[in-house]
Design a protein around this nucleic acid. Sequence first.
RNA 1: GGCGCCAUCGUCUAGCCUGGUUAGGACGCAGGGUUUUCAACCCUGUAACACGGGUUCGAAUCCCGUUGGCGCUACCA
Length: 468
Amino acid sequence: MKVRTRIAPSPTGYMHVGTARTALFNYLFAKQNHGEFLLRIEDTDTERSKEEYETDIINGLKWLGLNWDGEIIRQSERLGLYKKYLVQLLNEKKAYYCPHIKEYIEKEKESQLENKQVLFHRCTERDSNLKVGEIIRFKNRALNSVSNEDSLIRTFQDNIRGQIEFFPKLLGDFSLAKNLDAPLYNFAVVIDDHETEITHVIRGEDHLPNTPKQILIQEALGFEQPEYAHLPLILAADRSKLSKRHGAVSVNEFTKLGYLPEAMNNFLALIGWHPKDEKEIFSLEELAKEFQLERVQKAGAIFNIEKLNSINNHYIKEMVPAEISKLIAPYLDMYNPTEAQLIKVAHLFKDRLNIFSEIKELAGFIFALPIYETKLLSWKEEPKEKIKENLQIVLSILENIPKNSFDIDATTTELMPKANEIGRGDLLWPLRVALSGIAKSPSPFEILDVLGKKESINRIKKTIEKLK
RNA sequence: GGCGCCAUCGUCUAGCCUGGUUAGGACGCAGGGUUUUCAACCCUGUAACACGGGUUCGAAUCCCGUUGGCGCUACCA
């Protein structure tokens, strides 16, 4: 049978990195088994679902290169299908209309909580077979009698976790739909996974408690049970489920910050999965080849942004300046840089860039010399006059280099003998600051090269002026 | 409260199934090197088997318990 997996996000928020990781694992598993990876939008909650979020999810998947097979499946467009099965369950008396409103159920819960009981609804109308309410509930057979075999412990297999136990009775008569035209999550999932012939349900661990309900629905409908695999959760630093309050969690935020999709995929793959050997850098194709569900971790993993940064830095270093220049351009927009400038900047900063958005802070001085204090010019507390004198020396040397051969080689060759003579720090430090206005920068020779002769001379002269 | 899941360096993890390792790697951090600073790169270092029993000649590894963490407990998904 052909392997089919799916990513089934609900468009109630921007695409979460957890969704991205689940999508990635589903994609990888499908690819390595020459199967299909489907995208299903779970938009049955009309109150919270928004088109904007759906678009964001689609863009996120595309950005990551996790291309799905076939058309997008939208649950909101399949209401007739759910209705058909709902009617079937109702007719077969495997589901019923429940008259109890929310307030009643909540009160019921409160008293159950007080009495330290399991929270579930057992309806007085479950056998009335009348349409006494809107909500449709699953008639849980395990509730029928205490000696019923359905009240015993049951298990299902999870490809990551092994055998999982559950008590059908403890599930109560859970809800299937708000009404005939408004299916609820657990029900819609079962119908869709069946109809689209999903063979492997790979999803977050937060769905583990839903699985028994879904299995019961499958059995009531006579559906085949797919294989399950529940992924560990992505956690925040405090080990709770990663959410908005923890900072950047949506894929589009990472895109805006200037992360590379290949770094994102690589990093996400390493949260909860690890190859046999010690390799850590993987392309999507390599991942599809080496990924194994059996090697997925069971415990939740903290989203470690430092690691992501280091992986991103790795991928940036592998790129050529021409590619990088395009990606840093948006962050330097306010300076109206030329293409040639961007390429030089890309070349100069590629090794020290974790994410592209950092370029503004790192390279801003190239385009606009920041204001700085005069004392920054002194290497080791030399007097003003000494600094000025050294800058004069540099200036006279640089002025003698022809404009069109004013590059790293030329400036290094001309300046270094003098620097060695009077002290490297004494000569090069003031030059660095005169050119950049900051303490932490690339070498003065590299800056000279990017700035060009005219701007370099200009900056040095201004500094000398400043020292008067 | 109930149910379920989980537990190796600060973090991500290898090792666990098929007991015998100086418990390995990466990120981070610290120190050193690299034609001045920063970054990158190279080298070195740092640091972990949650606890208690049991089985065994021998337990991170198998079993039981404890503790802790997380998730779910909707007319959300």
